[in-house]
Simulated assay, not measured.
Amino acid sequence: MAPFLAYEDKGPTSGSASSRPPHATPVPLVLVHGHPFDRSMWSPQIEAFSPGRRVVAPDLRGYGASPAGRPLTDFSGFARDIEALLDELAVDSCVLAGLSMGGQIVLDCYRLFPERLRGLVLADTSPASETPQGVRARDAMADRLLAEGLGGYADEVLERMVAPYASARVKAHVHAMMTGTSPQAAAAALRARARRRDHTALLPRVRVPALVVVGADDTYTPVSGARALHAALPDSTLHVVEGAAHLPNLERPEEFDRALAAFLARVDARQPSPAPPRP
């Protein structure tokens, strides 16, 4: 259950739009942040899109203002938390957007409750499971974060999370999110993420539109991986954001938002189709 998640819920709710026919109601947008961040990474998108549609942005379990709750051992616990929050907020269906780890959570949500998702936004993310080397690296990083906190890690990776030429304001925001994250929650997420499912086989079965976005200078999830993700999805659009690294929604919000706005308009115009069978 996830009523404990902290979240922002802005824009017209389903209740205020109930007089409109369903096809005229903008689809709610739910934003899932990456690691080790919080919901404030979506501040530009919340501001841009909440005047015209309902936008929900939670802090994942143990991140931001959300308490850790029960210990996370299964990566799908994040998806179950999102599902419970949708229930709590009476969001029957939505476009679900996630960046990096958030994109992996979005794919897990589609695996678990595809009937509630009208579109997917997969930004700077990968569908594959972790390699044996990656498992060892994530476990070692979890140990390090528990021993040292996130300060040294944040200093080391800041100019990979955002490009070295990103603005000082963006760098400060990203650094503050990382250093504000609980080491215990970050370590638990790293261990669970290291053992996540491989969603590669799920991609050809996705029956809703998808938007794949990637920063042109992202070294964590490079453009080549985004092109492969785009090719594997039956109905997807690829947008490469120039002048950005791993967080294009913060580094180049205007361009990111233009791509997202075009995608949302397309989803809004599309009539819901019968729910697909669960994989």
Rank of each mutant, 00 (worst) to 15 (best):
R61L: 08
Q133T: 10
S50F: 10
Y63F: 15
T13V: 12
A147V: 08
V121M: 05
D59H: 03
L86G: 11
L72A: 09
N249R: 00
S19K: 14
R205M: 07
S16G: 08
A201H: 09
E254I: 03
A168Y: 00
A210G: 12
A189G: 13
P248E: 02
F4L: 09
L211T: 06
V135Q: 15
V106W: 13
P274K: 00
Y220N: 00
V135Y: 05
V95C: 10
L5P: 10
Y220M: 01
S43V: 05
D268K: 06
L247A: 11
T73C: 06
A245F: 02
A142N: 14
D143N: 14
R278C: 05
L264M: 06
L238Y: 04
P164V: 01
T73A: 14
L72V: 13
G225A: 02
L247S: 07
L145I: 14
L85F: 07
L5C: 11
L203R: 08
L60R: 00
A128F: 15
A201N: 10
K171A: 08
P3A: 04
I105M: 09
S76P: 01
A185P: 12
D235V: 04
L89M: 15
D74G: 09
H33G: 01
A226I: 00
T73N: 10
L247E: 09
D92V: 15
M177I: 05
